[in-house]
Amino acid sequence: MDKIIYAILISNDRQDELTRLLSGIRGISDSNLFNITYNDISVVASDFSSNKIIVDKEFAIDYARVIEDLAQHFTLLPVRFGTLMESPDAINEILIKYYDEFKQNLQKVENKYEFSLKVLWDYEKCSGKIRLKTESEDQNAAKLFHNNSVSTEYLLKKIKEHRFESALLEHVEQLIGEISTRLAQLNPIHKFQKMVTPNIILDAVFLLEKHKKDEFIQAIDHLKSQHDDLNFLLTGPWPPYNFVEITLK
């Protein structure tokens, strides 16, 4: 039977605690969790029969719940959803082969939490304001053309669109710059994605020392008070889903 892997964690000399913890958590489809240990790190896994289990949203939530429960007690690396290995021996081989990389990543996330920040604006309202601003420049754009033809009209329309898009992007970058400068004071490791939808101007994840959690919330709260036109959604703490960089070959 295949084994499904949930996480790799630092177990050190806390084997008994880990065993007790695992006996109190149920894996997906009510399976028993077990650990395979090499030196000071362990893999947490359970049996998995793909014939019996339907992989759906509930399955994913169960999987995340196991990782969440483990993360409350141990520093861990969450494993990609649905990672299967054929036997305990295969898991052990992976532990030995990638021990140094696992350890390096575990040290990177030790005593840290992941937080997610989404910043929304009202695209229609904000872009309307920016469009008004760029309209005055648009009048100068017509001076670039001396001929009046279908081609030049098309180019003029395109130039107006590009100017609007550039102004919009510049404004978004300025906002993101303000947010990142404020949060950089807490030295988090971060990953930013901007304009993932017209309304989400920033979708970011942060890896931050646990003791800075309250300070981080206060910093976001301060940013919120400075930007009435933006909505902030801060969630966490999460296991470090976005900060593990290991590719198994």
Partner: peptide
């Protein structure tokens, strides 16, 4: 309990996340 701070209607965020 995972929401630490939310300054807007939660439905707006849910709608956008569904789009994503």
């Amino acid at each position: 309990d995972k929401i630490l701070l939310n300054s807007g209607p939660i439905d707006d965020f849910v709608g956008e996340i569904e789009k994503l």
